[in-house]
């Protein structure tokens, strides 16, 4: 008989909550409420920056190259987890898929491929700074790369593929690159979530189509959803998820076509639109 065996008391291996989790139902709201509590901020210094697909990358060098320089210029001060949107080619693939009646989960696979192309292009432009592109299976290396190289590139689509949920309306995958990037910022307890798009932020309507659209500098997710706008500046799911978030309870939307905006947002300045959980 060794000491370890003497110390082995199965009834004390689990906390009280652990015992309830093992024996209770995970749909029991009282039990679920007991699972609330402080959550570690795993990467508190990292900023998640999502580069828009249609809004930025599809514009080519004119829009993307200055932004790449600005990203490089911020490496000394800021850690960045850089996600990419999908954009025009995803719209084309979704159109073909809709015409053929392909399921939402298959569209999610197609959108992932486009987002991955954009991640690869951004990655090559940043290659000389030693910045890697990581796929979801490589995320365990993310903390090392952030410390060593200050930034990584990933594709913004969440890796749901065939398990993408149907949207409430229509067939386009509801959880796309805004949502995938947001969830990275939330799970790691990142310092900020910045969406780089081609508008100054949020408007009351699509400013590309409506001249009377007015700028909204700051708003809560609940207020924004209640406005029930025809169009939104970020995926609806981000606004819904943010209200349940432990850490990343605000997001910022900036115009990446304006030099200096990203640097200002990384520095914590009030640029673009800030959307908060409450």
């Amino acid at each position: 008989m060794n000491d370890f065996a003497d110390d082995y008391r199965p009834d004390q291996l689990l906390s009280d909550l652990g015992k309830r989790l093992v024996s209770g139902s995970l749909t029991d709201r009282q039990l679920l409420a007991q699972t609330a509590g402080p959550v570690q901020q795993l990467l508190p210094d990292a900023n998640v920056v999502k580069i828009g697909g249609q809004s930025v990358i599809d514009r080519g060098g004119k829009a993307l190259l200055p932004l790449v320089e600005e990203i490089a210029g911020n490496l000394a001060q800021h850690q960045m987890i850089l996600g990419t949107g999908a954009g025009t080619r995803a719209r084309h693939a979704y159109s073909v898929a809709l015409d053929l009646g392909l399921p939402t989960g298959v569209m999610s696979v197609l959108g992932t491929f486009v987002s991955m192309q954009n991640a690869r292009m951004l990655h090559y432009l940043l290659a000389k700074h030693g910045i890697p592109f990581i796929e979801p299976v490589q995320f365990p290396q993310l903390p090392l790369y952030l410390v060593e190289r200050r930034a990584v590139v990933f594709f913004g689509m969440p890796p749901y593929t065939f398990w993408q949920q149907n949207p409430a309306v229509g067939r386009i995958p509801p959880h796309r690159t805004d949502t995938g990037s947001y969830l990275v910022s939330e799970v790691f307890g990142a310092r900020s979530m910045i969406y780089v798009k081609d508008e100054d932020g949020l408007y009351t309507a699509d400013p590309k189509k409506d001249r009377n659209a007015t700028f909204i500098p700051r708003i809560t997710a609940g207020e924004l959803l209640a406005l029930d706008l025809q169009d939104l500046v970020v995926e609806r799911a981000v606004l819904e998820l943010m209200q349940n978030a432990q850490h990343r309870r605000s997001i910022r939307v900036i115009n990446g076509l304006v030099p200096g905006n990203l640097s200002r947002a990384l520095a914590g300045e009030d640029v673009g639109t800030l959307i908060t959980a409450e």
Binding site: L31, L32, T35, P158, Y160, G180, L183, V187, L241, N244
Partner: peptide, 16 residues
């Protein structure tokens, strides 16, 4: 399990 992994949604109640 769906392959949501670290991309799982934060729930309305608790952390499961």
């Amino acid at each position: 399990d769906p392959p949501y992994s670290i991309w799982e949604h934060p729930p309305g109640i608790g952390r499961i």
